[in-house]
C-alpha cells in the first residue's frame, strides 16, 4: 500500500494547502474501494497491479487539477480591459522614455546614434518589463478579489449607443496612435530642446541638423502640435469618422510637403568635418539625408492617399 500513499502524497502536493487533507482522505477511500473490488475479482493483488490501477487513474497533477481546476492568472472577464490597459500604459511609457532619451542624446557630447538607439529600445524594454509586471500583478489581485465583477460588460449598455457598423479599418489600433504620438513628440523635442542649450553645449551636442533646417522645423511646430492633438483625438474616439479622416489627410499632406521641402534645402546637416574625415565626405552625407527625407515623406504621403480612398468610400 506504500504505492497508494506515495500516489496520494503526490496528488496532495499539487493541491492548495486548505484542501490537501480532505481530498487526500477521500481519494484514499476511493482507491481502497477500487483495490477491494480488484481483490474480489482476482484474489490477492501485487504491487504491479496496484501500480497499473494508479496509472489508469491518471498522473497525480491531472487528478489534482480535476479536483481543483487551475484558476487563470487573470479572470477572463478582465482580459479585454487588461490588454487595453497594457497597450495604453506601454504606449505612454514609450513616449515618456523617448522624451527622456532624446533630451539626453541632444545634450550629450559623446552619445552617437547607435548608443541613442540602444538607450531608447534597451531602456524601453526595462520600463516595459516593469509596467507589464505591475499591471499583471494589479489585475491578478483584482481577479482574486472580485472574480465575477465586470466593469465594461455590465447590464447598463444599450444597443443604440453602439457605434455604427463600419469597415474593419475604422477601428484605430492603439499601436498606430502611439507610433504617431511618439514621432510627433520626438520631433518637438528635437526642435525645441536645443533652444534651451548654451552655445557651448550646442557645439558639443550630437545634433547634426543645420540651423536652416532647424528654423524650418521650428516654423512647422504648429503642424506637429496639431498632429499630437489629432493623435489624442484618435485615442479618445478609437474610430475613424469623416471629419477625423479628412483632417488626417490634410495633416499628412502638409507633413509630406514639409519633408519634401526640407529635402530640397541645402545644407541639411551641420557636421564636424574633422571628425568624419576619411570616413564620409559632406556631399555623401547630404545626399543620404536628402534621400532619407524623401523616404520619410513617402510615409505621410501614403497615409494621405490611403485615407483619401477611405474617405471616398466612407458613408
Amino acid at each position: 500500500m506504500e504505492l497508494v500513499q506515495r500516489y496520494i502524497a503526490a496528488v496532495q502536493r499539487e493541491l492548495p494547502e486548505t484542501k490537501r487533507d480532505e481530498i487526500g482522505r477521500e481519494l484514499n477511500a476511493n482507491i481502497m474501494d477500487q483495490l477491494d473490488a480488484l481483490t474480489e475479482q482476482q484474489g490477492e493483488i501485487n504491487d504491479a497491479e496496484v501500480a497499473a490501477l494508479l496509472k489508469q487513474m491518471g498522473h497525480p497533477r491531472t487528478v489534482a487539477q480535476q479536483f481543483v481546476p487551475p484558476q487563470p492568472f487573470i479572470n477572463a472577464s478582465y482580459m479585454a480591459l487588461y490588454k487595453n490597459t497594457l497597450f495604453m500604459v506601454l504606449g505612454i511609457l514609450f513616449v515618456l522614455h523617448l522624451v527622456e532619451v532624446t533630451t539626453l542624446w541632444l545634450s550629450s557630447a559623446d552619445m552617437g546614434l547607435i548608443r541613442y538607439g540602444f538607450a531608447l529600445f534597451g531602456g524601453f524594454i526595462d520600463e516595459a518589463c516593469f509596467g507589464f509586471t505591475s499591471i499583471t500583478v494589479a489585475y491578478w489581485f483584482m481577479s482574486r478579489q472580485q472574480p465575477v465583477a465586470n466593469t465594461s460588460c455590465g447590464k447598463s449598455w444599450q444597443p443604440e449607443t453602439l457605434p455604427p457598423a463600419g469597415p474593419g479599418w475604422q477601428h484605430i489600433k492603439l499601436q498606430d496612435i502611439f507610433t504617431d504620438l511618439a514621432s510627433y513628440i520626438f520631433l518637438l523635442v528635437v526642435i525645441w530642446y536645443p533652444l534651451s542649450m548654451s552655445a557651448e553645449q550646442l557645439a558639443q551636442s550630437s545634433l547634426l541638423l543645420s540651423s536652416n533646417v532647424r528654423l524650418i522645423l521650428q516654423y512647422s511646430t504648429p503642424v506637429i502640435v496639431l498632429g499630437i492633438m489629432h493623435s489624442l483625438w484618435q485615442l479618445q474616439q478609437r474610430l475613424w469618422s469623416r471629419n477625423m479622416l479628412a483632417s488626417h489627410v490634410v495633416l499628412n499632406v502638409v507633413i509630406a510637403a514639409i519633408a519634401l521641402y526640407l529635402a530640397s534645402t541645402s545644407p541639411l546637416l551641420q557636421l564636424n568635418t574633422e571628425r568624419w574625415y576619411g570616413v564620409f565626405n559632406l556631399q555623401q552625407l547630404e545626399r543620404s539625408a536628402m534621400i532619407t527625407l524623401v523616404i520619410i515623406a513617402l510615409f505621410p504621403a501614403w497615409e494621405a492617399l490611403r485615407d483619401s480612398v477611405r474617405l471616398r468610400k466612407f458613408k
Binding site: 476511493n30 474501494d33 473490488a37 491518471g58 480535476q66
Partner: peptide
Amino acid sequence: HYGYSLRKQLQDSGIDIDEGTLYP
C-alpha cells in the same frame, strides 16, 4: 452512496464514467 458505489451503480445502469470525472 460513497464514490465507488456510485460509480458502480452508474456503470450498472449503462453510464460508464471514469473516476477522474465522477469524484471531482
